[in-house]
Design a protein around this nucleic acid. Sequence first.
RNA 1: GCCCGGGUGGCGGAAUGGGCAGACGCAAGGGACUUAAAAUCCCUAGGGAGGUAACUCCCGUGUGGGUUCGAAUCCCACCCCGGGCACCA
Length: 824
Amino acid sequence: MVDTTTSPERYDPETVEVKWQRRWDERRTNAADLEGARRPYFNLMMFPYPSAEGLHVGNVFAFVGSDVHGRFRRLQGWNVFEPIGFDAFGIHSENYALKVNTHPAELIPRNIVRFREQLQRIGLMFDWGHEVQTTDPRYYKWTQWIFLQLFRSGLAVKKEAPVNWCPECKTVLANEQVINGMCERHPDTAVTQRFLEQWFFRITEFTERLLEHLQRIDWSESTRLMQTNWIGRSEGADLVFRTESGTPIRVFTTRPDTVFGATYMVLAPEHPLVEDLTTDAQRAEVEAYRQHAASMDLVSRRVGDKEKTGVFTGAYCVNPATEERVPIWIADYVLMEYGTGAIMAVPAHDERDYAFALEFDLEIRQVVRPPHGAEVDAPAPRPDVPPLYTGWDGTMVHSGTFDGMAPQDAVRAITEWLESKDAASRQVQYRLHDWCISRQRYWGPPIPVIYCDRCGTVPVPESDLPVVLPPLEDFRPDESGVSPLARAKEWYQAPCPACGGDARRETDVSDTFLDSAWYYLRYPSTGCDDRPFDPALTKKWLPVDSYIGGNEHAVLHLMYSRFITMALHDLGHLDFEEPFTRFRAHGMIVKDGAKMSKSRGNVVIPDEYIAKWGADTFRMYLMFLGPYQEGGDFRDEGISGIRRFLDKVWGLVNVATFEGGEITAPTMRKLHQTIRGVAEDLEDLRYNTAISKLMEYVNVLRGRGSDDSAVPDVCTELLEPLVIMLAPLAPHFAEECWERLRHETSVFDASWPAFEASLAEEDQIELVVQVNGKVRGRVLVPAGIGQQAAVDRALQVESVRRFVEDKPLRKTIFVENRLVNLVV
RNA sequence: GCCCGGGUGGCGGAAUGGGCAGACGCAAGGGACUUAAAAUCCCUAGGGAGGUAACUCCCGUGUGGGUUCGAAUCCCACCCCGGGCACCA
């Protein structure tokens, strides 16, 4: 029997891990041969933002899961490249720097040092020779270069636009950074609206492709869904309503079938036609409302189900279907950014229009009669108005010649009819907006543009890149809406690249999401100084084979990365359009069922667990917590089980016999079932079940469950596959075991054990016998037994006979190698 | 409000092209070893009822219905938890 207390040596993680990390360094085990690799596999994980708090257990969970995948692929014979870097530019770093009153240029390198140490301690298969830092001028030189490419091709444009302004961050935010009208980084701070000149990337040019590719890339379903919703495609038509003076007003609708019910029109308060339309009698009231709407922050403006407000302009236009005069109103429930900024209001069939019409006593005319007995969306509040009905079932009424049609058919028929009158055109609208990349902050790459009074907006020549961020003692943002860089006079005063005259640099920096939208392209080419990515290396290694990260980046980072890749493809810099062939979103680690947060005080710091248990035990425990793609609940108590498991393997390895012992058929069978099961599980990132299969196998090797309780000596033939399968999860431990099994090379240069189906097959199976669907007995039968033989055997079982008695069998259900069900 | 994901022992979680519910692990109880404890090893274990006993029966996967020889798994309605979107016409 193996007694680990008296055996010559106990498993000491500290010793083992230090030893193997050193040896990996010396042997350059984790460095990929980028030029020579024959089966390149780019295993990418989302690079971290190096916070002052250090690595969080959620980061460790994410990294380890990705590392397990990379190591598994390597054992399968791929040349795996697993790089890492740091995303240290941007608002989160700068805000923290402001909080602790330390310059980010001083803070960030310190944080990176700590992060690097922590990452190294976990034993990830990183190729440290290709580290990138977004704050390094050698990196952001190329971030600026990307801006220039987009600028030249017209994909980067400057325009005045209503933008999200966070009073706390004192900068503009992308729509994606506004959560419920609140700043992503300051959940208590309402985002307000400002009109500013900003740089935009025209991501909306790519909407259809971004959407269409989603159907064929191998990504987590949840992530694709979030992107689809974010893009928000709606099909419909633009209809033209003309004012009495003949001015056309276009409205977008997804329900052209309901045009006969359009009893009024609403324009967004900012709509450019409002000025002209408004009658003198209404002007004062309209002006007051417009001012009110403009001053309002986007929260109260945007948050739904609030009281509807609005003002009549005094003007009318003609409904092209009914040719009736309908009043034109303005109301803030119509948004200028979506569609045409104007709507035809069909109160009987749209929830918002219904509420508005009731509020201002406008006509509500039903044009779709709900099917008999159908549920309506809101009952009529008064007998003289119809109920609200937004459904697609029913029949058209009060719609002229279209009466009696189904709404779906009426959409087509009415659109065609209006098209023939030049009053309609089919239209697709998207929710996605252009990406505002300007930030009035300090800690980011300066946007490489120079403004000249004579030449206008001039891009910085590529040969002048990088535009280095100047050291600035006071980097605090202020209310002005202008970047702190506007205080660096010597810096922003620059000669115009075109005419050489006095000119001024752009003082805004770019969004941190631009830094991270292309870092994976840089990894293989970090040694390349004259271009952002080397063509040969890029061809060999990209697109990324496996990308793993959190779903919190589903619509920000992942969308922007796809856009940048597509844009660079179209400009001839890349030969692929999608950056990540396979993406999997990992789950979240919670503590006691709740999200970890500093305010709750339930944040798990990984360091102390690693110090106590070792990296391998901690890695494996995190992978054992729950399904990787769902996350799990972190509990201190569970970790000892993993350690006990490793101790058992250690015990077996240290008494291994090398002469080749006898292997029984059941043991061999278990081995091959394990090889098959573990490979399948690792393939699908089901690490928790892979681990439990390894545990089962070890229990068999140790003879648990058999009569003889002594642990048998086990031959290397049974242990080597185990050690290899364990290696992705517990790499240092596996290396040590591998060496003790008398190997001189790394276990990661071994190959994944071969599965042999014939050895995994059971020759005898336990057949479940049911009577009327209830389990009444079990019989041991040869595998592959036929139905008749199975029924005969089943009927011999005493407990079965008791229920069958002498009743005739009405029916027999037979599932091969599983069960028979006797129905009497 | 809309769109996803989920609800299984004391706990984390297994098992879904319908077929032995609770694998694996934690915690727990009993035993072995020990002067003792820790560690280790072995055994037990969803709940309930009956039996001296090997054992037998009933109930059981959020709730209520349904389909089926058979449902954690499929269908309908609902409740709760997590995430995303939210005046997007």
